[in-house]
Design a protein around this nucleic acid. Sequence first.
DNA 1: TTGAAAAGATGACAATTATCATGTATTATT
DNA 2: AATAATACATGATAATTGTCATCTTTTCAA
Lengths: 233, 233
Amino acid sequence: MEEANHNRCENCIIRQFNSLRAMSKAELKKVSDSKITKKVKKGEALFEEGDKLDGVFCVREGISKLSKLSANGKDQIVKLASKGEVMGQRSVIAEEYTNLSAVAVSDMEVCFIPKDSIVHTLSRNPDYAIEILRHMAHDLKEADDVIVNMSQKTVKQRIAEAFLYLKNNYGEDDQGFLVLTLSREDIANVVGTATESAIRIISEFKKKGMIRTSGKKIGVLNEKLLQDLIEGF
Amino acid sequence: MEEANHNRCENCIIRQFNSLRAMSKAELKKVSDSKITKKVKKGEALFEEGDKLDGVFCVREGISKLSKLSANGKDQIVKLASKGEVMGQRSVIAEEYTNLSAVAVSDMEVCFIPKDSIVHTLSRNPDYAIEILRHMAHDLKEADDVIVNMSQKTVKQRIAEAFLYLKNNYGEDDQGFLVLTLSREDIANVVGTATESAIRIISEFKKKGMIRTSGKKIGVLNEKLLQDLIEGF
DNA sequence: TTGAAAAGATGACAATTATCATGTATTATT
DNA sequence: AATAATACATGATAATTGTCATCTTTTCAA
């Protein structure tokens, strides 16, 4: 008899948050039998731009940055993926080389699911396809928002937005610092600016009492001031 | 007996270029029976940001801009949709209000397909779902590229890219002018800059012999110079 | 056709942002 | 613990881009 352990996808809570929840028991069993659980240390890459992925990564723990190298040698972080998110779906579905790199920004635990079980389910279970479609439609809408933000907001506004985003999505620790700690360089790469500019703006926010820092850690002190700045006051 | 006219989706060539090609004959018949063909004049809107769409628009002729209004009152053009493209799929699938406005930039002919037939097919025909999925995966990848361009390239580079894009995607007329003529304001809204900045850069390109103009029309004279500029020389 | 409105063009200037240089603090490694 | 490497910080300066004002040209409707 099979043991009901937590390494089985059937029992994995994470699944509830992503498209895998539309899979049948049998499909899920197949996925579970073929998947590999991996630990990835902060700073390590899950995959690199241009890789051919033969599967997707389901995030169980930790956070990964998805970035793209620009012609002038700077990394642009396009998305942060955390618990429950599935990375690499796009490339697997479109059968293309991936256009993004994935690097852990905190220690991670991920499940690698070979593409066979994904593709197989896709062509047989319309609910699963629709579920992925919904997720992708959502991502696309978010991407549109990012495009508008990038082109219409100032760097200051984008950094303020980033801090509120980090607060709302990953929360604060008991001392009020953002749980997800990014390097200044990563922050710069999220908002698409030079590292020095990001550092300068962080200093300015600190002087104005909007945030406080302790080493790399950042704590939001005055959410309203940040919000006002974002809205252009 | 049914007449085999060109207003039937079954006989529409456009269909070959989009996800409708994965539909069965019966499904296509249903779509065709419920669709409405419309003419839209240049400058008219197909739908506005925030509208609830009860169907999708399939472009038969002409070009539409898909844009989003930013907080500071400027429009950001996120995508141009031309022959064969289906607009509004995202909102219909995600069952959300649309996040974009669609306005014709040239006279258009579009088919409006009520969402029922789309949704119905989606849940029954996995091939159709996969086909849409592929298209959306592609759009998402393109959106990532736009994000990187917006944040890492200068306005000059983005305008140069836009001209090459227009040339490669919509071609030139017999006098070598770009077929798709956009107003200076639209060009500015595509690359995310002020109209004056766009005009200034266009003047500069003209002085340097990269392009020539005649009224609104723009002709690419030296593709290599533009390409070099894009690549940072 | 003719005047009003819209679009295009350009100068002057201000604000934003990038780059380079340099110094200090932190972190990692032996 | 010492040292090297990396990240953070800040000044000085230059380049880019936005804003406001004004003028010309084109477009369009009466």
